[in-house]
Design a protein around this nucleic acid. Sequence first.
DNA 1: AGAGTGACTGGCT
DNA 2: GAGCCAGCCACTC
Length: 110
Amino acid sequence: MEKRDYFDEVYEVVRLVPKGRVTTYGTIARYLSLRAGARMVGWAMNGSHSQTDVPAHRVVNSVGVLTGKHFFGGPTIMQQLLEDEGIQVNNDRVVNFKTLFWDPALELGL
DNA sequence: AGAGTGACTGGCT
DNA sequence: GAGCCAGCCACTC
């Protein structure tokens, strides 16, 4: 398998997400200029289980919904991880998502 | 090679 | 905010 190419880049960006902040698949896709699109970012996260330092729980969709929670081995794992970082989650949706949103191209001073 | 699927997004209702 | 639809690319069978 060894898809590594853009997978690794996605992991790297996700790792840069500060604790208590979140970002979206589409944002990562655009930041890395992935033609593949946001869907592939999610697919890339599918391999994040091999990476221990990849906070995939900080990656949500465009409206702040924890779409990938089921892939954490449980429907509440992702939410608990976020709440543990001080992020409030209500009905699978990140509270103040717009405020907690972290844009790499913006925060990294690009 | 063709069809189905998915951790998405934007636009419209 | 929530639902439906179309576009998007990579992966699997």
